[in-house]
Amino acid sequence: MGKIRGAIVVDTAKCKGCSLCVEACPTKVIELSREVNAKGFHFAYMAQPQECTGCTNCATVCPDSCITVYRLKP
């Protein structure tokens, strides 16, 4: 288990479940939820939060700007 360094917040109402963030995450933090949002999309969430490095790759490729990234300053 890695030391927690980063975290993401997904705007689950806006997320369309395209899973591009899942692909972009180098540490496999993100998965699509089983539940759906009001629009019927399986939204992204941090399935392995302990692995997040706050690298921002997920937010960078997100077409719907629904990921906010936080990272502890070294």
Binding site: G6, C18, G54, A59, T60, D64, S65, T68, L72
Partner: peptide, 25 residues
């Protein structure tokens, strides 16, 4: 970790809050 001082990537205010009509991805 989720505190304003740790924010490294957020939505720019130049982008409106409207949900885009585009397809997923």
């Amino acid at each position: 970790i989720i505190k304003p001082e740790n924010l490294v990537y957020g939505k720019t205010p130049v982008l409106t809050d409207s949900v885009m009509h585009y397809c997923p991805g």
